[in-house]
């Protein structure tokens, strides 16, 4: 039975409550923190001479599609009526947007220590203690728009530009790929100042706090952000039905990316699924 992922702004109050309750239950059992750790353990940068599976790499999109599906499956074991909503940050692009309300994601961090003080994921509410993190801080942090050097969320026009790419990815298959849909959406760019942060990366920067680093999954908005990234990929696939995952074959011996990236039919850790097997989600979920 195909289920629907909805825009978070269209959820009813009951739907919001059910999603939050399922996330809190996953946290209580310890399963949520294992998702945090999975993401931490698979972040490899592209100058380290190691195989990259989740970031700065062609499999960025299928890896996160599978990661979201695993999370959503865990949520649906708790409540089969729940799915992961998406956050269209081109539209809901301010700290005043309803996504940050007290009954959903909660708001910005406070000025003194960036601690989130509102909503179900505030540490002070008693059900959200950070355990897998790059610092000893036990509370969720956010720093909307980085006031000390302000940055805005990506615009619809910027996203349109990404949608004009016609090829899935391009050599050298990393953060310096100048063309290709994957890096345009992931958002690595040269240049100066805030221009270096684009689309997906820029949203992590805009939310700030824990969303900026290796422990980004500690902020539940991670899932809503990545559901929208996945939606954008899904729409792009519909527009470009002939654009297959690249690279089709593993880069050969002698290529700088030899054994560094995942080709179309190679398995992705930790699940062993291939990029091509993640290409069509239409029999599992759809976007409203």
């Amino acid at each position: 039975m195909v289920y629907t992922r909805k825009n978070q702004r269209d959820l009813t109050g009951a739907e919001r409550r059910k999603f939050v309750a399922a996330v809190l239950e996953l946290k209580r059992t310890g399963a949520y923190d294992r998702f945090v750790r999975t993401h931490i353990d698979h972040y490899t940068a592209d100058g380290e001479g190691r195989r990259r599976i989740a970031h700065m790499t062609p499999s960025f999109l299928p890896w996160h599609r599978k990661f979201l599906l695993e999370f959503e499956t865990a949520l649906r074991r708790i409540d089969p009526t729940v799915s992961v909503p998406y956050w269209d940050w081109t539209r809901d692009n301010s700290p005043a947007s309803s996504i940050w309300r007290e009954d959903f994601m909660g708001g910005n961090g406070r000025r003194a220590d960036l601690q989130v003080m509102t909503g179900p994921f505030a540490h002070s509410a008693g059900r959200w203690t950070i355990t897998q993190s790059m610092t000893d801080t036990r509370y969720l942090t956010r720093d909307f728009g980085r006031p000390r050097d302000p940055i805005a969320l990506p615009t619809a026009a910027q996203l349109d530009e990404v949608m004009r790419e016609r090829v899935y990815d391009a050599a050298p298959w990393n953060s310096t790929s100048a063309t290709g849909f994957r890096n345009a959406l992931e958002g690595w760019a040269s240049g100066r100042g805030n221009d270096r942060f684009r689309i997906h990366n820029r949203v992590h920067r805009w939310v700030g706090g824990l969303m900026l680093g290796g422990g980004s999954v500690n902020d539940p908005v991670f899932w809503l952000h990545h559901a929208f990234v996945d939606l954008v990929w899904s729409r792009w696939q519909q527009r470009n039905p002939g654009a297959a995952y690249l690279p089709a074959e593993p880069p050969p011996l002698g290529d700088a990316q030899y054994r560094k990236v995942v080709a179309r039919h190679e398995p992705m850790a930790p699940w062993g699924v291939t990029p091509v097997s993640m290409f069509d989600h239409s029999r599992i979920y759809r976007y409203a």
């Binding site: 940068a45 100058g47 380290e48 790059m134 050298p172 270096r196 942060f197 900026l212 680093g213 290796g214």
Partner: peptide
């Protein structure tokens, strides 16, 4: 310090600024 292909570095605290 995580080395990037552009010659720069990111860290586990800030994954997005090389």
């Amino acid at each position: 310090l995580m080395r990037c292909a552009d010659g720069g570095y990111v860290t586990p605290i800030d994954h997005y600024e090389s």
